[in-house]
């Protein structure tokens, strides 16, 4: 079975680039938080700063990995050239802007 997703290539590329940029943006953020400045702060304040930052480092890092994963999925799907099943097509569609939610997923009918 061969499945198509009716979305312009430019939309796919733009989405891939934005997910990739988002991953870079979030990687910068969690790394900044992970080495947040506690110079010239008291021990009590420094401890509270670290306790604040830790869960958000983990959370932002996790979202960064998601974003990078989404960007990588576009590359993966592009290499496939054609999508092999409906689930893959719907998965790819879910990574696109909401405006593309009605992009047609269709089975290719061979003559």
């Amino acid at each position: 079975m061969t499945i198509t997703l009716d979305v312009p290539y430019a939309v796919l590329k733009a989405a891939r680039d934005r997910w990739d940029a988002s991953a870079d943006e979030l990687d910068g953020a969690w790394r900044r938080l992970a080495k947040i400045s506690t110079v010239d702060l008291s021990d009590a304040v420094a401890a509270a700063v670290t306790a604040f930052a830790d869960p958000w480092v983990d959370e932002v890092k996790a979202v960064a990995r998601c974003a990078q994963g989404y960007a990588d999925e576009f590359v993966f799907f592009r290499r496939l050239l054609v999508l092999v099943d409906q689930a893959q097509a719907e998965r790819l569609r879910a990574l696109l802007p909401w405006a593309q939610r009605d992009a047609v997923v269709d089975e290719v009918s061979w003559p």
């Binding site: 910068g28 953020a29 900044r32 938080l33 400045s37 506690t38 702060l41 700063v49 932002v60």
Partner: peptide, 8 residues
């Protein structure tokens, strides 16, 4: 500290 928090 505030600068780091703002950047993030």
């Amino acid at each position: 500290l505030a600068t780091d928090l703002r950047a993030a």
